[in-house]
Nucleic acid binder design. Structure first.
Lengths: 224, 224
DNA sequence: TGTACATCAGTGAACGCGCGTTCACTGATGTAC
DNA sequence: TGTACATCAGTGAACGCGCGTTCACTGATGTAC
């Protein structure tokens, strides 16, 4: 993993002993766990350190303030997102694979990640509308992923009806992430009258993406 | 406008004199205006009443607490949404109109509303993930709109490749609102590498919706 | 191989600030006779 | 048509609670000689 840019290194004081590496990890885990239940500003520092089997002082030895922990979480996640995308959308990996199975695999993978980190994703969505630094990081990751998608589309232009692959990749990316963002905001109920299982949601998103691209297979079959 | 259900009547004490009707309206306007700039919990009651040329006491004479004003705003907006949808998606209104122009008109209309009430929409998205009552109301409106869309699709089944029109309507609705929700969260920059003008975004959403429905026109033309 | 010292790490009671809310009061509007 | 009284509406200083943050302290780990 390449080092993040200097400007992004400010959220956490990197610990020097192994012991406090543990403490830091426990704090980060506790934070993610608490985000499953409440939004960040309803999580108190006291509850956080209790959950992380740490103490208030230990917290402030690592982070200049409460907000920095969340910033750090998002920064780490953004970096992971970029590296995961690099690996998952690598050109060679999908050599000779057609668009539909490719997209289906990717959407399934991303959807599963949303389930596994629902709390963090909810908070990121909330923050994006509030905090320019979150927007910056989120848009940076999106930009990176969109460019990777565009490369894959470029090689499969014969399967689709699209001129500008970058713009097509952008929209396809928007559909995927905005629908998942919305689903994850509605914790215990669907956002509308139709309840979809995870695979059904994935299939619906795939169909929307292929449909947007003008992929022939999209219209050949009714919605399952 | 039919009266809201009794359970929904609790957020505001309805005023008895014309004078305080004005005060109430000014408070609501001020709240919506402030939401353009900051999330609700960063808006202080003091700043709110200053903007609304009112006073703290007047505020608490109308609302039991700060949160109730926001609840009231959402409730009012939800009611408006249902009535607007009833009028806009009325069967007779679109008699003989084909799917593509119908959808284009509707998407353009909704997108414009998102621009006009961006602050409130941002806050609604935030709250949906936090507050079950918001989710309930939002999902109720969505359910109503989806059913209206399903009726319009049912009459145009020959144009599309779809079995279950309710489910198709649900997904088409999700695409529209989730993409707009996402766009509106990114206040001053696009959520990715591609900046779209308002009409371009509308056209992209229309294409995604028609593509999902398996509409023939969707594949006939590249993305503009 | 022990002793002394420096730094790192962790602890939690106490502080203090911001902001929602209360409340005692003034002024305006309506109504009875 | 005026007077008295009741209710409605508005005012803003003061209160108090929740929670982030500070800080004086204890204990653990590393290092020099």
């Amino acid at each position: 993993m390449p080092p993040p840019s200097p400007a992004e290194l400010q959220w956490v004081r990197t610990p020097q002993q192994a012991r406090s590496q543990d403490t830091l990890a426990r704090l980060l885990d506790a934070a993610e766990a608490m985000l499953e239940e409440s939004p960040w500003d309803q999580c108190t520092v006291a509850a956080l350190v209790a959950r992380g089997k740490s103490s208030i002082g230990a917290f402030y030895a690592r982070f200049p303030d409460k907000d920095s922990l969340l910033q750090h979480l998002h920064q780490r996640r953004s970096a992971e997102g970029i590296h995961t995308a690099d690996a998952a959308l690598e050109r060679e990996r999908w050599q000779g694979v057609q668009l539909a199975p490719l997209i289906r695999a990717v959407v399934g993978f991303v959807a599963q990640d949303y389930v596994d980190h629902a709390g963090l994703h909810r908070e990121i969505v909330r923050r994006n509308s509030t905090d320019a630094r979150f927007r910056e990081r989120s848009a940076h990751v999106a930009g990176h992923v969109v460019r990777l998608i565009a490369l894959l589309l470029e090689e499969r232009k014969s399967e689709i009806v699209v001129d500008d692959t970058l713009r097509a990749a952008d929209m396809v990316h928007r559909i995927l992430f905005s629908v998942l963002d919305q689903s994850v905001q509605f914790v215990d109920r669907p956002p509308g009258p139709v309840a979809l299982t995870q695979p059904q949601l994935v299939e619906a998103i795939v169909r929307a993406m292929l449909g947007y691209l003008g992929h022939a297979g999209a219209t050949a079959r009714s919605n399952a």
